[in-house]
Design a protein around this nucleic acid. Sequence first.
DNA 1: GTTAGCACTCGTGTTATTTGAGTGCTAATA
DNA 2: TATTAGCACTCAAATAACACGAGTGCTAAC
Lengths: 343, 343
Amino acid sequence: MLTERQLLVLQIIIDDFIETAHPVGSRALSKKGSIPYSAATIRNDMADLEDMGFLEKTHSSSGRIPSEKGYRYYVDHLIAPLSSGQNIKIIRNIMKEGIYEFEQIVQMSAEVLSELTNYTSIIIGPELSETKLKQLEILPISNHTAVAILVTDTGHVEHRSITVPEKIDLSDLEKMVNILNDRLKGVPIIQLEKVFQKEIVGLLKRYINDFGSTQHYLQAIISQNNPVKLYIGGKSNILMQPEFNDVDKIRSFYTMIENENEIANLLKSKKDGIGISIGNENKVEAIKDLSLITATYQLGKDQMGTIALLGPTRMEYKKVISLLSSLSKELSEALYKWYKTSE
Amino acid sequence: MLTERQLLVLQIIIDDFIETAHPVGSRALSKKGSIPYSAATIRNDMADLEDMGFLEKTHSSSGRIPSEKGYRYYVDHLIAPLSSGQNIKIIRNIMKEGIYEFEQIVQMSAEVLSELTNYTSIIIGPELSETKLKQLEILPISNHTAVAILVTDTGHVEHRSITVPEKIDLSDLEKMVNILNDRLKGVPIIQLEKVFQKEIVGLLKRYINDFGSTQHYLQAIISQNNPVKLYIGGKSNILMQPEFNDVDKIRSFYTMIENENEIANLLKSKKDGIGISIGNENKVEAIKDLSLITATYQLGKDQMGTIALLGPTRMEYKKVISLLSSLSKELSEALYKWYKTSE
DNA sequence: GTTAGCACTCGTGTTATTTGAGTGCTAATA
DNA sequence: TATTAGCACTCAAATAACACGAGTGCTAAC
């Protein structure tokens, strides 16, 4: 069990290291006056804390730095959630702004988040699993081409250009779109393709000549390719952190951050509330020496997205946690206001 | 005036330096056998070339590296445009792929471009100045909100969520949209707002009760905020270049590349054809030690976009130039095929 | 005009040396 | 018994000293 003083020592060391990024030594601590004990006393506690695995040395005669276990203890027991009044204001101001659409709000949130912290922020848009089709439209652009536009009940718009097979004529197209709309409105996006196959293919075959060649076509319109959107802010901000003073680290960080799939998977698995993964607690190899703090936000009943900050394990956990939880709250509220009458 | 041999020396030195990134010395050159003269002879020519400003030394007893003037001479006189057969194939294959829409083609082009070169590629979407409105739609999502969708005659889709003022009722909205469509179809996107002000505001005032509160509203839908899209590929690719072995350079590169406005302006000013800016020839401070190669592509009559590669001044100009010119040709052709019947 | 030869330069890489902040341990102190 | 002072020891980082080698410029010979 840890004594009072050991707790204090641990806390001060971690705070100090988070601030300065330099190993902290007993003599310096004692001199700084933040703790009223002599260097020798502190030294003994440090040795104990190291034995217990909360601290580490970078080399045999260096000052101590927190281990991952140390950080873990710190965030679990030593952190007093800091209410970040001023930051909340900044966030609220974004939310207030007028005509932005959801995408823009999220994008801006990501940027501000990273601005305020100097870490890299990642926001993943809400999954569309529960979203339903509101309207499907196909607009001919020329003889060959058309745009298909899908609108969901949350106001999300997907569109894709397509080249139209020669054989289809305009009145047929109109007929098909009508049928599709009749049958597909209200169907969850994720099931569009299934419903199309089961209920509509047969129907259309009856009404449309030579439907075979068109089928694969409509299908392409309907089958969404993973529409989860990722917003990343401050990719270069993180270069300010001293742990990125090494070219190789930068390289590997950027190759990781550009691989959107990996990141998406990383965040999708997150549960409700605040999540903290420190260093090796992360399952993804590429960020095993970073920390990832996540928070979820709600859109409607059970759809949700995740906002996250990625930074060195030496992270300003206090600040980050309070920031993320306020942002997630604000974001949920803004979305709620936005969509509240749409259910 | 330069002698034959001096030209040869210059060319070989630049080629060599582009390949290895190491200053090249007379002895090594002579030994390598690519030129049948002794080190001393080469040395004399090098000294002359340096006097004329084509070469530089990194320090008093180092080998020579090309100066910016040297590169300039090289691209203007010494380069035989290399036909890159295999690369063209790769590019063609992208263009062939089926259902992609314009955005996707461009995105993929950017990625391939950077893949093939290890530089950072930038593609700027065609300006919408000449594009005309094809269809405007406003779809109510809930009591408060709606999505506005604008489709252009090139199949480009813009959309934005809006909150609807309480006062407007649905039938009014429908009326307004009809009027807007009637009057605005075929109007160039860029003039939408002007036409709206001049021709439509008056009209709507007559038909709609309490139009004042709605006006600012519709306007927000119509006024596009700079819809020029930027596609950047291989932001991290460029880290492979040895000139980016310095953390500060990386930092400044990334802060630059994330500033989309600056980049957009950089590219927008480019004239037709291939453009080469070496080092200080660039007007933008942040890339004064890089080279930027640009090529334009056409969409229709006079709309165009720009594709570009950004890399160290020690760039594989031969390869890059041929690659860019084939890509711009292919891109224009693909777009032409895509839209040819839409005019 | 070309080349060989030679003295000189200077970045790079290696090895020694010094310095200073840190540690662990033991003995003295409150 | 808990704390502190004192001391010998460690090691990273900074500095200096040195050799090496690829390069240059210049002069004289071919």
